[in-house]
Design a protein around this nucleic acid. Sequence first.
DNA 1: TTAGGGTTAG
Length: 707
Amino acid sequence: MHRLTTRRRSLHYHTHLLSDSAKDQNHLISLRLRPIKPETCVSLIKQCGTIKTLKSVHASMIRSHLHLNLFFFTNLVSQYASLGSVSHAYTLFSASQSSDAFLWNVMIRGLAENGRHDHSILLYRQMQEMGIKPDNFTFPFVLKACGHLRDIEYGEKIHRDVVEFGYESNIFVGNCLITMYGRCGRFDISRQVFDGMPEWNVVSWSSMIGTYAQNSCYEEGLLLFFQMLDERIRPNRVTILNVIPCVCRESEADEIFRIVVNNELNFDQSVQNAAMRMYSKCGRIDIARRFFDGILDKDLVSWSSMIEAYVQADLPIEALELFKQMNLKEFQPDFVTLLSVVRACLNLASLRQARIIHGFVTRSFFKHEIALETAIIDLYVKCGSLEYAREIFDRMQERNLVSWSTMISGYGVHGHGIEALDLFDDMKKGSTKPDHITFVSILSACSHAGLIAEGWRCFNSMIRDFEVRPRSEHYACMVDLLGRAGQMKEAREFIESMPIKPDAGVWGALLGACRIHLNVELAELAAKSLFELDAENPGRYVLLSNIYTSLGRREEADQIRALMKRKGVKKIAGHTIIEVKNKVYKFVVGDRWNPQTDAIYAELERLMERIREEGYMPDTNFVLHDVEEETKEKMLYVHSEKLAIVFGLLNSVPESVIRIKKNLRVCGDCHTATKFISKVTGREIIVRDAHRFHHFKGGACSCGDYW
DNA sequence: TTAGGGTTAG
């Protein structure tokens, strides 16, 4: 990350140099005309806009036999550093015969401002070893460096120095302490410093608010902001930038916006960008878009923020469209933008889009950023292509824990348990140690593939070999593993033997297993806990209701539906998406929005007839409504999965693979029907559901009917 | 004092 910051900084300097070059030309000409006088020396140094000019001034000073005293030295060091040349500054600094705190401060600041935070701290240490006392200018620079490095230990040491040298009541030092502790995640100490200060300025308030924002203490941040207004302190634009991340409600957003207007604060680009994010976070993507459209000179952050807003709002198509427009305007996406765009694609499940974005990344400056490469591996996994995912994984220059875990879980969700285990073995041979997430990946891979003995082996090796203590997620994976395999008694005993209290994930795994094996007794036990622990989750109620329906216990199923209504829990509407000829189409149950609706329904009718001849029997247990059998069958026919598949069949070349994505778990009847469809049409159909992947081919599914 | 996000599972 620091590398990126430096890169951005140098880019900034570059433009800065260009704009100043004309001014510098005049500067150089005037230098040649007259010798340098001591009294004009410092102002000449400060006017230099490029290293080249500064070097000429420096040379003229030597040519003019000017005595380079400490004051001139310090100004030269400072100017070299602020023009981005730390090496020149440091050479000069080291060459100085004498030194004082001023010179050291300038060098420490120069290092910190050029992203060399660790060196800046090192220099602070050396300064003390040399017996030079730090002053009220030293502390802010070096505290800032500690904040950047998240080095709280050294930050605390400097805090002790602050007390020792008697700068505890200095408002500037205090403000920097607040920020340093905040960046290190200790907002509680920041608050102690804030409360202990003898006086505050607008920076103190802003820093404390920003600290709360950074540590996700939004309530506290907002509270302090309004307290600040009560104290009649006028906020500035940085206060606004700091408080904006704390805003979670539309009414608060309106209030902040009103304050900006009333105080006539500069509504510049960064405030506009922030306002945009504020409204998008409150769920008002429309207002965010209005702000975006209103920004006259949009910068990369504006575009990036709006794209991310669409991703957050689960509007991937809009996000990608904006990305396209951004490229047309010849904005080069950077690391942050690309990560957003990858996440947009992830929600779309479009392999074609994944290829395009991958191409973009490959041509960009950031192609070997591990986070981005890993995100793309995950993207290919989620778009159904393990081959591409593995290709990138194998070609990575560097892999970290996350890359390994991603690839392992990729094999897992596609039901390739053996490959996941092989990769896990490879990982163990190297220097990367698996963590708790790797174990979730490998255990769920075993579960998806029904590998019970291997699952047990992994679970037992967690603490023994890797000192990873099982968490509730791992217990949930084991319950899932045992339950899917029908070992219901073992699953129950496993839960009873847990050393920690089972959470919703554990009970949910048991309930899911009960749905497959129709075990009402255990289902009711699990549901009892779930209706307390996870009362808002509609999926839990639907599962139990389905179990009752499957066993013909309609009254109890009705009771569950009534319970949902009473509690105000709404079923999530299912939908399926499919991409055809570069366009993404979305289907809901009984959908008639598609322009090809008539053709789809006609083909559906024909297809259903054909698979019936092959032996398909509609499983009407998956229809919740209390209606006649024949109507039930009709309702199954129009499930979004089936509509999307038929649409895919109608609009793709023979023998191509059909890929669809469902937002919920695929319905049991659709699963059976899809197996038959893959057989009669000879097509491969890949379904991504909320849980895993199903590869349908020749009448069978890769999940082995476990899901 | 300050800007967009932070990759893996469930």
